[in-house]
Amino acid sequence: MRKPELASAIAEQTGLTKEKAAEVITAFTDQVSAAAAKGDDISLIGFGTFSVRKREARTGRNPQTGATMKIAASKTVGFKAGKALKDAVSK
């Protein structure tokens, strides 16, 4: 499902216009991005938790040449599904 399809589904369920639903989705993603950029976790009970994870620096290998290379430390966002989401998917 892409953003326009999600906006349509939300609009249908809530009675909002598709444009307003798209604004809500954009506001949600903006807030999640801002919180993650600050290093905060975002917990939606039953749905899941977005959290910032640190990756240590490591040595990798270039798949084309086979040469070793250093991969710098970095941060990424992880998602851990909540119980309600896991239950919905496993049905």
Results as ranks from 00 to 15, higher is better:
56 E>S: 14
51 S>G: 12
77 V>T: 11
60 G>F: 07
54 K>I: 00
24 V>G: 07
17 T>W: 02
50 F>D: 06
49 T>H: 07
17 T>K: 05
27 A>L: 15
31 Q>T: 12
76 T>Q: 01
31 Q>Y: 05
33 S>T: 13
31 Q>N: 08
80 K>S: 15
17 T>P: 02
26 T>E: 15
69 M>P: 13
37 A>L: 11
47 F>H: 10
16 L>Q: 10
37 A>I: 03
63 P>N: 09
24 V>P: 06
59 T>S: 11
12 E>L: 09
34 A>I: 03
37 A>C: 00
57 A>M: 07
17 T>Y: 01
12 E>C: 04
65 T>C: 14
81 A>I: 07
18 K>P: 04
47 F>T: 09
45 I>L: 12
62 N>W: 13
51 S>Q: 06
35 A>K: 09
65 T>I: 15
67 A>K: 15
81 A>T: 10
57 A>K: 04
60 G>Y: 06
27 A>C: 10
41 D>C: 01
68 T>M: 15
22 A>G: 11
62 N>F: 15
37 A>W: 05
36 A>D: 04
41 D>P: 05
47 F>M: 11
25 I>N: 02
67 A>R: 10
84 A>G: 03
17 T>I: 08
81 A>Y: 09
75 K>P: 03
60 G>K: 02
44 L>D: 06
77 V>E: 11
74 S>H: 09
26 T>V: 10
53 R>T: 11
25 I>L: 15
72 A>I: 01
31 Q>I: 01
84 A>P: 00
59 T>P: 09
58 R>E: 11
43 S>T: 11
29 T>L: 08
43 S>Q: 09
47 F>K: 08
39 G>K: 10
50 F>P: 01
15 G>C: 02
58 R>P: 05
78 G>W: 09
41 D>A: 01
33 S>Y: 08
10 I>R: 03
52 V>S: 00
11 A>H: 05
51 S>Y: 00
